[in-house]
Every structure is written in C-alpha cells, then in structure tokens.
C-alpha cells in the first residue's frame, strides 16, 4: 500500500459518502444518473468476486464490502425509496448504457490477464468503470445547473482514479516487473473523460461561481 493508493481509496470513499449524504439529507437524487449507479454496482460485483476466496487484508475486505453495500443501497434507494425515486430525472437519464456493458464485455473477452472466469470479469469491471461515468456526465450537461453536492461527488469520483495513476507509476518504479497495463490504460481513459468536467469545476471554483456545464 502506498500513499497515492490510500489517498485514492479515501477519495473514492469520500465521493460515495457525499452521494449518500446528498440522498439522505435532501431525500433527492436530482442530477444523479441511475444508470451510472447501476454500472458502478456491477463494477464492484464483478471485480470483487475474490472477496471470499482471496483474503488480502482487513482493509481490503472491509473496503470491498463498503463499496458493494453502498452502491447497491444507492441503486435500491433511487429505484424504490418513494421520495428519492420521485426526484430522479428519468427523462434526462437516457444514455444507452447497455452499449457500454456490451462493449466492455466484448473487450474483456479479447483483452484480459488470463482467460479465466474471474479474470475476464475483472477486466470487464475495469473497462466498465472507465466508461461508467458517461451517463452521469451527459445528465449533468442536460440538466444545466449542477447542485453543489453533485458537483463535489463527480469531482472526487474523478480524482480517485487520477490518484491511482500515481500509485501505478510509483509501483512501477518500486518494482519494474509490476505491470498493470489493463488497469493503467483504462484508468488513464477514465480520468481523461473527466477532463472537461475538471476544467469547468476549476473555473467555477476560481470565479466562486455556480458550476455550469455547457449544453
């Protein structure tokens, strides 16, 4: 474990806590894409299949359980909680995310570390996570004004994988045999997808203005 990865995991956890806070405190999920949340739940479920077979550390196991439980709770809330589901922007959240599922799965069948059930699903989860934010970014552009908590949520979500890139660089220097090409290239693509959001987030922070994404 290195500081970049630890900070990355904490940033990821903070993003989830911000989203839970938004939904719990405002009883609203306006501006949040249910499709992105469903994709994240799938990412965690397919990536952490080794949860009960490979014990790595208490930290690792606890974090996996937290990520799986929180992502499922958010999807459940957005689908079933009477107040929250009413605030869901169903007519704006129209990204055809099934294509992302299919593309990620096909790519995982082609590109993986080992042609084994768990490894193919691990690669699938890595590719899917890279593109899972797309429905959310599209929804933000369509809904125009972005409320504060939603903006922070997306910012921390993007920042976590950027920190992971430093983690991979660090691990490469420590041990040149350490190669995680699939995760690293995917992580670069994932972070690049946030580029324009980060730009408008920075502008709004600099001008101390509301976060506005151009339509």
């Amino acid at each position: 474990m290195n500081i970049f990865r630890f900070l990355g995991d904490m940033t990821h956890l903070i993003s989830i806590l911000i989203l839970l806070l938004k939904i719990y405190a405002t009883k609203s999920c306006s501006g949040i894409s249910l499709k992105t949340q469903e994709l994240y739940a799938l990412v965690f479920l397919t990536r952490y299949l080794d949860l009960f077979t490979d014990f790595i550390s208490v930290y690792n196991t606890v974090m996996k359980l937290v990520f799986i439980a929180s992502s499922l709770a958010i999807v459940w809330c957005m689908r079933n909680h009477p107040l929250v589901r009413r605030s869901y922007d169903k007519q704006l959240d129209t990204f055809r995310h099934y294509f992302l599922l299919l593309a990620s799965f096909l790519l995982a069948l082609l590109l993986h570390e080992k042609f084994a059930f768990q490894e193919v699903l691990w690669a699938f989860s890595i590719y899917l996570e890279a593109v899972a934010i797309l429905p959310q970014l599209v929804l933000l552009q369509r809904s125009g004004n972005v409320d504060n908590l939603t903006g922070q949520y997306v910012f921390f979500l993007g920042a976590y994988r950027a920190l992971y890139i430093f983690n991979w660089i660090y691990r490469y220097f420590i041990d040149p045999h350490f190669t995680r090409w699939i995760a690293c290239v995917s992580g670069l693509v994932q972070t690049a997808l946030y580029a324009d959001f980060f730009y408008y987030y920075f502008i709004s922070w600099k001008n101390n203005a509301k976060l506005q994404l151009p339509a």
Binding site: R5, D9, H12, R47, D50, D54, I56, N60, M63, K64, F67, Q118, E119, W122, Y164, N167, R180, A183
Partner: peptide, 10 residues
C-alpha cells in the same frame, strides 16, 4: 512458489 497476488488493489 507463492501464487502472486491476483489483484491486491480495489
């Protein structure tokens, strides 16, 4: 030889 850790990252 210890099986290399499959994926030790989250």
């Amino acid at each position: 030889k210890q099986q290399p850790r499959s994926h030790d990252e989250l």
